[in-house]
Design a binder for these strands. Sequence first.
DNA 1: GCAAGCCTGGTAAGCGCTTACCGAGCTGGG
DNA 2: CCCAGCTCGGTAAGCGCTTACCAGGCTTGC
Lengths: 411, 411
Amino acid sequence: MTVLADGGQAAGRAAPGAAGGQGGDSAAPPTIYDVARAAGVSIASVSRVLNGRRNPRPETRDRVQRAVAELGFVPDSAARALSVRLKEVVGIVVRRPLSAGPPVPAPWVPAGAWDTAGLLGYDAFADETESLQFHDMVNRGVERAAQRRGFDLLIRSVDITDHDAGRRVLALARKSDGLILHDRVLEPDQLDQLSRQIPVITLAGEPTPTTANVGSDNATGMRALARHLLYDHGYTTLGYLGGYGDSPDSQARLETLAAEARAAGAVLFSGPQWQGNYYAAGAAVVTERLLASGTPLPRVIVCANDQSALGVMYVLRRSGVDVPEQVAVTGFDDIPMARHLHPQLTTVRQPIGELGETAFEVLYSMISREQPAERDITLPTRLICRESCGCQSGGKLAGVTDLSSVRHLRP
Amino acid sequence: MTVLADGGQAAGRAAPGAAGGQGGDSAAPPTIYDVARAAGVSIASVSRVLNGRRNPRPETRDRVQRAVAELGFVPDSAARALSVRLKEVVGIVVRRPLSAGPPVPAPWVPAGAWDTAGLLGYDAFADETESLQFHDMVNRGVERAAQRRGFDLLIRSVDITDHDAGRRVLALARKSDGLILHDRVLEPDQLDQLSRQIPVITLAGEPTPTTANVGSDNATGMRALARHLLYDHGYTTLGYLGGYGDSPDSQARLETLAAEARAAGAVLFSGPQWQGNYYAAGAAVVTERLLASGTPLPRVIVCANDQSALGVMYVLRRSGVDVPEQVAVTGFDDIPMARHLHPQLTTVRQPIGELGETAFEVLYSMISREQPAERDITLPTRLICRESCGCQSGGKLAGVTDLSSVRHLRP
DNA sequence: GCAAGCCTGGTAAGCGCTTACCGAGCTGGG
DNA sequence: CCCAGCTCGGTAAGCGCTTACCAGGCTTGC
């Protein structure tokens, strides 16, 4: 191996090109022409060997393979993509706050606004939007599955406030064979338009005639959690600290919780005052405001996800409120950090990585137009009882506990 | 807006192609020919308007822009890349354990081996390699910077044990305009070969004649930490729990620590017994073995990074060892989680996101052959004293504390 | 009022690859 | 022994875009 096509027989075709920049002798990567010349065959033969078409004669094959190894040739993806109409790339769009404003003490946001801008920059959680994310774990799952098919992940973030994400997403789409959209990055009409041009998987919400959705069973998980809190613990006042207001997952979780609370005759607080943004910092700010407002806290705060729970617990602890003795807190997702909190977080586990793997597999089947893919996949969730709900360390109360839900398919 | 080229004048050129698959009427995305036809101009004019070349007449421009908006046209990246020789994609390679084996109780690894296989799958940290990573934060920095230039990130992981990563990395290279390599993914000769064909930035180690390196000031940060432990706290026995054996960062940190320990006349343990893998799970296993072996623990365990510190603290706590009273523990990186541990982690802060942004900027300058880029950039680090070293909560001892290092450039 | 330019827009080549098509050389059956 | 039929490799078209080059219509200066 080694050796680039700069030495001997590399004449003929285009010279090294516009090379010669600073810092070493950068040579243009070898092309299929270089290989063909080195092997003494035509480019068609090289291509055939590389793609295993119509097996060429063993001798030809050998010559080509030797030349390929010699030159370290790998086909240029752009050229190949243009020709076969397949880029072997899937785009992933994550929605996150990009503009981390200056640390905000406790800005007052007009009630009722969806505005989550004030929820950034809580000092103790600076940089948090940068790390330990649910998104990252899902993406890792996608990557694992993609790897098996030779695909790579093209990742792009759009700001949560970016309501014209359409343009940015479309640009990504043109660099990919298919798209996976986290949460809710597009308005329905944009989604519809996009999905007519390229396969699209959403990770929250409902499938549309042209998209598929992969999600987890919010209802079953939340129901188990709610019943545990309502009946096993007997809590009668609860608050739901939400994610983005327009997040389908957050909405679904709230709905189930509300139904259960109603059925049990318990009081549930939610709404603008309880509007978080899926981040610890956002939840921390919300909790501070709640505390400052003087309203009595509910007995348990059910958070839309684990990170929010982290923020809530942080502020409560700092304010001298004992968790779970005075106020219990629960999460959703079961990210790795959940079990390292004090008290350990009671939460609902989603198969995070599997969510990503499944999303890729469905997308792949759409891209390759294989079997008609299932368009609505729901992965099971289950309650993970730890300490923050008020249970004994590590133990589980009898009754509702390990409610695994079923894999639910809808054609 | 809206409307695809399926309605009226979309005849002429290639029909929707092989479309018509299951699930909705997928139409091929519009091409520049569709736009040209709709606007009644040639494709050259469309291209010129799109790329702002030789301003066309305002009226022509308008017609084209209207057609573009109408059709929702965005050029196909593969075709564009092939033509302009720029993909607007940077590849990022992360090295991580991909094959998470079954939970291992305490496998015995032959002393002296670099083998880190046994360091996965510590139950309490299952999935940890999937989340909260330093890598992710760096990547986010890269993404931020890339976004400004219209670039996207193509991400691929290679297994730490993959010693023939060359092939996989090269494939990624062909999909990108430049590469950013985390840690040490390639052998020097592979790196050399690769970097001759495409711009490469490493995030650990030394620059080579054909690559640039962006790193942070391990020496200054570790020196401050070491002196704090040695002189402010007066510890005389220390252990260094390393990252991957071949990791330049881990080695550099060890070197500085060793030099300081020697100068202070303290004892430093390190070596195979202390070989971790940058993950909490790995560090946990190492710590358990250490405990099991009966060797007395040093007064302080200095970890190669924060995640390792997390693993060490977890095991110590479970074994009834008080941190920091009996054994102090420190990290490196200052990931967001560090301040949420109990006790809060004393560590050395690296400007993680900035590392990524800088890496991209340097890479970009190489890609666009601008100004000769600096080839060796070292970002400052500083000691963050919290509790796990033995300091009072939140306080800082007098003396060595906030040693900011300088931005150090080497031509 | 006419020619020298300038500006504009079209035509076509080419980026590096895949593959349909074709022709040459072999094999083997009649 | 001859030709049908097959195998193998080369030639060339084309993927969707950018851009060099060119031609035609205007402007403009004398």
